[in-house]
Write a protein that binds this DNA or RNA. Sequence first.
DNA 1: TGTATCTTCGTGGGCGAACACGGAACATCA
DNA 2: TGATGTTCCGTGTTCGCCCACGAAGATACA
Lengths: 356, 356
Amino acid sequence: MKNQNTKIRIKDIATLAGVSEGTVDRVLHNRGEVSEKSKAAVEKVLEEINYSPNLLARSLASKKYYRFICLIPAHQVADYWESVEKGFDSAAHDYLQYNIHLEKQYFNQFDANSFVNVSSQTIQNKPDAVFIAPIFRDETLNFTSELTLRQIPFSFIDSMIEEADFLTYYGQDSFQSGYVAAKLLLNSLPDNAQVVVIRTKRKGAESNQTIARKNGFMHFISENGLSNIELLDIEMNDNDENVNLELLREAFGLNSNIKAAITFNSKVCRLAMHLKTLNRPDVRLIGYDLLEENVKYLKNDVVSYLLAQRPDQQAYFTVRDMCTELIFKQKVKKINHVPIDILMKENIEDYMQFRE
Amino acid sequence: MKNQNTKIRIKDIATLAGVSEGTVDRVLHNRGEVSEKSKAAVEKVLEEINYSPNLLARSLASKKYYRFICLIPAHQVADYWESVEKGFDSAAHDYLQYNIHLEKQYFNQFDANSFVNVSSQTIQNKPDAVFIAPIFRDETLNFTSELTLRQIPFSFIDSMIEEADFLTYYGQDSFQSGYVAAKLLLNSLPDNAQVVVIRTKRKGAESNQTIARKNGFMHFISENGLSNIELLDIEMNDNDENVNLELLREAFGLNSNIKAAITFNSKVCRLAMHLKTLNRPDVRLIGYDLLEENVKYLKNDVVSYLLAQRPDQQAYFTVRDMCTELIFKQKVKKINHVPIDILMKENIEDYMQFRE
DNA sequence: TGTATCTTCGTGGGCGAACACGGAACATCA
DNA sequence: TGATGTTCCGTGTTCGCCCACGAAGATACA
C-alpha cells in the first residue's frame, strides 16, 4: 500500500527532474543557490511522488548534534519525579543514535529562585530544545518568552501553561481525574457519611494540579446532587507527622461518621499510615500516583484505589515528539491528555511490571 | 555515563587490535577465516572496550531482507482484531527502514480448516518470523512444531499455548481480569441479588480466554464468601438476536432480583442493547474490549465498566521484540502481561484519544 | 575582448558497517 | 624448483544522505 516510497532515493528524484543530487538536496533543505527553473522541476517531481527520506542514512551522514536540556525538580529516590527522569533517560538512550544528547538540570521545587538560576544557566548553554516542568508559573513564563525570542523550542511536562508557545504537553486532565476519583470514592456510600479531604500546600500555594483535581471532585458532587455528604477539610503539616496524627485522631473521634478520605497530591501514603495507626480499615481511601509507599498500602488493602499515569512514558514521548518535529520535520500533537489509570490491588501487578 | 561507546567504531577496534576492519568484522560475525592469533587480539580489545555497533549504519549497509508473516482472524471493521491489525501496520511502517516486510494472512476464526490452510501456505513461503493468534489449539501446535523444526521463530498474540516454543507473548492475564471484573461488579450489591452471566460459544467450544476470565470471576466469589449471590447462567445465540431478547425478557421477569450482568467475551454491546430495550437501567453491566458499540453503551450509562487492553500496542510490541531479537541480537522478555485497563464513562475519552 | 564578481550546480568524499574479491603467505606435492 | 592448493586478511565498493569545494555559466564593467 505504501511501500512504493521505500525505494525512491534522492538520486531517483534527481534523474526524474533532470538535475543533480546536490540540487535536489538544496531544494529539499531549502538552502538556496538554486535557480527558479530547477527548483520548480524538483518540486514538481516531489509533488508527484511520495518521497520520504531514509532516516537511517540521514542521521548517519548528518554531523548535526542536538542538545536537549530538561529542567525538573530535584527529588528523592522513590518519588514521582524519579519516574519522569527514568523516561527521559530511556529516550536519551534510544535517540543517542540520532545524535541527540540530553542533559538534566535540577531545581528545588520549593524555591523559585533555584528555578530562575537553572533557567538562566540553560539559556546560556544555547540548547536546541528544552523540556520544562512548570512548577513556578511566573518564572516559567519569563523563561519561555526568552526561549521563544531565541527560537529555541520547548515542551511542558506534567503540567502546562496555556499562554506559552510550547511544542507539546503530556499530562493528565487533572479536572477529569478528580471527577473519576469522586465517582470511585463516593459510589454507594451510606447516607450522611462524612468524607475527609486532605490538603497540603507547597510553600503556601497549592499546585495547579491539585486544585484542578479538587475542582473535578467537587463538580462530581454537585452534578450528582450529593449534598447530603459532608466534607471535612483537613490541612496537613508538611514536616511534623505527629501533628498530623493528632489532627486525624481528633477528626476520626468517637462521634464521627467518616467513611472515606482522599488526598489530591501524591502523598496518600502518609494518610494511610495514620489511618492504619488509628485502626480504621473501614475508611475508603483514594490517592494519586504510584509511589512505592502508596503501592504498599494499596496491596495492604489500606488504600482502595490509586489513580495513576505513566510519568516515564510522558517524558519519553515528550522527547520523541521533539525529535519528530526537529529532525524528522513532521507535525506533532500539541496537547496530549494521557489516560487516567485506575489501579486497585488486583491489577497493579501487571500494570507495574509492564514497562513501556 | 554511557556515551563513550558512541564513538567506538570497527575501525577503532581494528587499530587497537592491530588488524584490518575486515578481520574485526569476521570476528564480530563469527564467520571464520581468522587465525587464532588475530582472533584473540580482537577479542581482547572487545573485552576491554564496550563496543555497540551503530545500528543505523548496520541496517543501511545490510542487504538482508526480513519477511514476517502474521496470521490473524478475518474480521469486521469495528472488531477487536481491527485494533490488532492496526498495531501490526504501525510496526510495519516503523520497521520498514530496517528492511522488514510484514505480510498479513487471514483465516476464518470459526473454521479450523481455514487456519490449517493458511498455516501450510505460510510454511511454504519460508518467512523469517511468524506471529500467530492461536485460536485453534491443536492446529496451532501442529503448525508451531513445524516452525520449530525449520528454525523459524514465532510469537503469540492475544493468547498463548504454553507448550510451544514461542519467542514472546503479549496479552492480558485473563484470570486476573475476571477477578477484577467481579470486584467491580459485585462491590456493594444488595443481599440476595441475582447476577446474570452470559455465555457464547465459538462453534461449540468456549475460548480459552473467556474460560479463564470466568474462572477468575468465580474465584473472587468463593474467596470473598459471596455465596448469597445467585448466578444465572444464560447462553446466548450467536445468530438470532430475537431469540436472545426473549431469553433475557424471561430471565428479567417480574419476580427476578437481577442487579448485575456480565459477558466474558467482547460482545457486551448485544446484552446492553437488549437491556436497553427491556428498560432496565438499574442493572449494573460489565464487559470487555473497546468495540465501538461497547464504547457507545459505556458513554450512554448502560454499561458501567469496560475492561480493556491495548491490542494495537500488543501487536506493535510483538513485532518490535522480534526485531530486537533477530536484528539487534538482544534478549527479550517471553511472557508479557499487559495492564488490565479499567474504563468508565469518565476516563474513556482520554484513553481512546491517546494513541500508542 | 578581457577580467572580475556572482549565481548556479555537479562531483566527490565522508558517515559506519557489511561483504565480495582477490592478493599474500604458507603448505603440499610432483 | 615450480605448480597448485589453503588459509588468512586487507581493500574497495555499497547503502542513502549531507555538505564542502570548486567548476561552469551568466552578468557587469573597464
